[in-house]
Design a protein around this nucleic acid. Structure first.
Lengths: 221, 221, 221, 221
DNA sequence: GATGAATGAGTTTTCATTCAT
DNA sequence: AATGAATGAAAACTCATTCAT
């Protein structure tokens, strides 16, 4: 039995108001990161969250811990979405890939820090999530390949790259226009998965070179 | 005939050393913007360029004027590349698109500020370049459509979007890995241009909503 | 009843130490403005006040807000002194004017920013004080005119002009010499108020042209 | 015979364009000093004068030499005006004082640096001018005292103080309003010179304490 | 747990001054 | 004689961080 105040190892459960503050800080951080980059002033983030800067510091002792949490929440969304996509992969492999990509584009407010090319995730939790995501995508693609609706030379890394590229914030562009443009790009990418008349693809970097960038830990994949 | 001291309207030609400094400042700015975003410290940019911060300020009176010049130089590269791609479009329409995209990816150091979603270009020169680019791409695509090697529903804006997405800096990723990933993505995109078995694309934003984002001036396209 | 923590609308009462710092900053600002003008270095002001420059900025977000407060405090002194001068105006109208002027000269450390010809006061509070001062002076003069000891063509604006001229800092002149010279000038001015043998005065600017310069709001006077 | 290039000791005659530049620089300096104080940026002064900053430096090797010249030109104006006032002093002593004061007020653009309370004049030429002015004013007042139109206790220093006070720039006030206000003040001061019903004046500082402030050198007065 | 206040260490920006053309 | 360019130093301003309440 855990005490009322503590959850798991070293993680005391937050008081309701504190939890609300924490969530608002993360929300503001995502907005600020999107608009101003990860160098966004912390007091600006606090101000937008409606809390004092010292409160932000109590929750996140430095900028990196805030960044890491934003990255982690992004990874979590991707893992969750990939997992759910797999549920429909057997009946409709291409549709499940399509729904996955479009869902992530829709929720790209959670993915302000690029999955690839963004701050390197260093936490244990992030490593765990990364180790799960690539195998899920691999499984997803396997359904498509088996059923002949997805070209065989496509890899999980191509999917992740695509998500990373289309989800990066375009801060100066009105949100609906940005969505329209990248949604079209995603549809084009889906057509690129057609197995007929493909031309050979250039090689991909080795997975072990991408550790920490939302690529499956090579030890696990 | 222009006088020895002046170039065009109101723009006196720079002294040789001043011109060199200016170029170095822009180079450093591109590097810094890629690594740190457009909020990169200006004195760091000056230091890397080997000039005093006040020299930077003499050339670019504020951060925005520096950003605008970087944007403009990017536009210029795209315009130049598009123009040259057109030279081979009649014989090899798909190859000319391919070479255009790959050339821009290769030179994406010049495109650190996203063509779409980056700081809005407001200068007269930028407007002029924008007005030129889309028609060139349209002509390029027309060759492909006519010869039946490019799907008809693709637009210049789709090309620009793709360039914008794949050229954005991925500062935390080693450069060669980043290049490998986005090059693969470009090859996939090229396969997406195949005219057979295409599925319908969602609508594109109206060009007039994208003014200032390297989309052709609607009056001209 | 006001809450313990708040004073008036939107102005939380300062903590004791913060209030002390604020007062010291204003004192240093007056001294520096007198010696160096309103362009005096702000870090010098902070240093003299014994606080960090950032503390100054917390209280006064830019130079102008500091200037405005100094102006306002000057207005407040004038309003206060004029009000008190009125208490003795019935018995001794000329003496009350004399005491008013001399008191302001004595306290001209508070009036470093000229009442007329200095930075224009734009705040609501300044406007309120301005609306009060001229009527007080008018009343003061009325006593003198009625009792035949003050010429009838003198106006509140003449008093304010005189105060403004004699209270402006003379930074290069030793303080006691400056005091002696301007005190003599004030005595001469008082003799100029004698009602006999006066010569006509040239016209005064319309009060509505002087709004923001410590002249009563024409709507109110 | 002087050489074509040199005038007197060490003062080469300026080429016509150089002389014009010098005059424009002094004009701009006066304007800038009035608006921004003597700390006005030198390059701003150069800009307004339409010359390069280095040209200003060639003429005035430091800020003080520029200030001193502005002070000196002011002294020269006062000496000249006092001299001319004396021409009509015998027939119309009060009128000659009045015309003197009003003329200086009119030309106070030349007197931006306060005659008293401004930068101390240190040059040999300034000393010479100072030694001439007070005796001229004394002579002027003597005519008035003798003819019974000026109170006997008034001194040259009172005149100079008055000029100093009313001629100081009021940078934020529209010029015509400022002129109207101080002209009225001067007229009041003139009425203060009436010899009847005067009240005793407080003592004046000793002249030798005011050396360098446009008060006659005590050795000469 | 939250906040107002303060501060030291930047970063931006301006400006006096010198140099080479 | 005049100017464009460069620079070092100062001043304005911002921000991360800590402390006391």
């Amino acid at each position: 039995m855990t005490s009322r105040a503590a959850d798991h190892a070293g993680k005391p459960r937050l008081r309701a108001d504190a939890a609300r503050n924490r969530a608002q800080i993360l929300d503001s951080a995502r907005t600020a990161f999107r608009e101003l980059g990860t160098a966004a002033p912390l007091d600006e983030i606090a101000r937008r969250a409606g809390v004092n800067i010292a409160t932000l510091y109590r929750r996140f002792p430095d900028r990196d811990s805030l960044i890491q949490q934003v990255v982690l929440d992004g990874f979590e969304l991707v893992a969750q979405a990939a997992q759910e996509a797999l549920n429909t992969a057997a009946q409709d492999p291409l549709g499940s890939v399509e729904r996955l990509l479009l869902r992530l584009v829709e929720n790209r407010d959670m993915l302000v820090l690029p999955l690839i090319g963004g701050p390197v995730a260093t936490t244990r939790e992030a490593a765990g999530l990364q180790g799960r995501i690539a195998p899920l995508l691999e499984e997803l693609l396997t359904h498509g390949r088996t059923q002949g609706v997805v070209r065989p030379d496509i890899t999980p890394m191509d999917l992740i790259t695509t998500v990373a590229l289309v989800c990066r914030p375009l801060p100066y562009l009105p949100a609906d226009h940005a969505t329209a443009l990248v949604t079209r790009h995603v549809h084009l990418f889906l057509d690129a998965l057609r197995p007929n008349d493909t031309r050979p693809l250039p090689p991909s970097p080795a997975p072990e070179d991408l550790r920490g960038h939302l690529i499956a830990d090579p030890a696990e994949s």
